[in-house]
Design a protein around this nucleic acid. Structure first.
Lengths: 225, 225
DNA sequence: GTCTATAGGCTGATAGAC
DNA sequence: GTCTATCAGCCTATAGAC
């Protein structure tokens, strides 16, 4: 699979350029392999040669399409953050019970990390642990928008008398933190348990999501009289 | 503070070596600066020149004292893991109520991350996210020993009828994960909130520890009749 | 658009004086 | 034990052919 041509988007319809294979496919292949490698090893440990080789393209094309290694990285982080916010923000107008809205939010984060964007938690954590050196103001607003959903939902739950008067920030961090940690470290657990001859299976992501849903729901509920 | 001589341990009492300043102090200075830098930037992003400069010693001494950059890193990770296990393992023989033992375990992790070893969560997370490439079998046993404490405590709680029949692995991961995430990302929040003109203060670590204690206690408790 | 070849800079490690 | 000087290797980015 040295040349994986796919996803011919409809740009410049009918016009085939003189030489080369497909600019859009090259771009996508670079984004895909770079996302995986950055998540696994971090920005500095990945070389543009690694990315180009895994994508099956020449390394000079990273400069041509993205203007360098750093801007390739920035593009990836921005798109990942954006996708999360787009999925979560509609919950601000969800009229269901606050407990149900939080369950849904947890499910969305879990689904994103499980299937569509498995590298998101690690890239997010790496960036945040480094102090966010690659983040611009636009990207920095995204986490706040996710928090806003949690904050409003919790405020509504407290007002309606179904949640204890918990701190929304602490609740948000425990909710997001337990999920991000789980998915960021899932590969490690799988590798360790496969290497050891233990009969223990690594925990299923779906089970963990349900566990967090229950933990948060019970942890926030008001005391029964 | 170009030459921070401190902590003259009692090795080779009375015998001062011919030249140089103090081998033990040099070693400690290198460990200290390397721990901070590795936690902030990760193994690959840190150069031996960075470490040596921050420690105020010559970079060739890293090879003399530790045998290279990698072995310096391994020494740090091993000591951090070891310190956590030493503190947590006595809880296996703690006769208090299971809920109290878990509260104590959470408090220990929080205290370690707050004061003694503030770089531990980030170093742990970085290593695990990378798949543990620098860990040997000895270090890999440490996380299992922490989990054993949680597993036994939860089993006792279920048996005594005070905990729901929760999965010990999922509970352990949510407990450790929410704490590690919080402390690994605390620097980022502080920096962001200082930069923005927001009047919001970053959440206090002590408050977060209590929040997790309550969340776990309530989340595991059996339903009241 | 894509490729080869190479420039220019930085890295970890070491040899050898003191 | 500590330092200076130096090396070989690898990195990103670019120039220029096609």
């Amino acid at each position: 699979m040295a040349r994986n041509v796919a996803a011919r988007a409809g740009k410049r319809p009918g016009k085939r350029l003189s030489r080369g294979h497909d600019a859009a496919a090259t771009r996508e292949a670079l984004l895909k392999s770079a996302t995986q490698l950055f998540a696994e090893r971090g920005f500095d440990a990945v070389t543009v040669a690694d990315i180009a080789q895994q994508a099956g393209v020449n390394k000079a094309l990273i400069n041509y399409h993205f203007g360098g290694k750093l801007q390739l990285y920035r593009t990836i982080v921005r798109e990942l953050f954006n996708e999360l916010v787009v999925r979560v923000e509609p919950l601000r107008h969800d009229a269901r019970a606050p407990g149900e809205v939080l369950r849904e939010l947890i499910a969305i984060v879990g689904e994103l990390a499980m299937t569509q964007r498995p590298h998101f938690p690690r890239m997010l954590l790496r960036e945040v642990m480094a102090g966010g050196p690659h983040l611009d103001q636009e990207i920095l607003a995204y986490p706040m928008r996710v928090f806003a959903v949690v904050r409003e939902t919790i405020a509504r739950g407290i007002q309606e008398g179904v949640f204890r008067p918990v701190d929304p920030i602490l609740t948000h961090l425990s909710l997001v933190g337990s999920l991000v940690f789980f998915f960021a470290t899932a590969d490690f657990r799988r590798r360790m348990m496969a290497q050891a001859r233990l009969a223990i299976e690594p925990p299923a992501p779906e089970a963990y999501v349900r566990h967090i849903q229950d933990l948060i729901a019970r942890g926030l509920a008001v005391d029964e009289p």
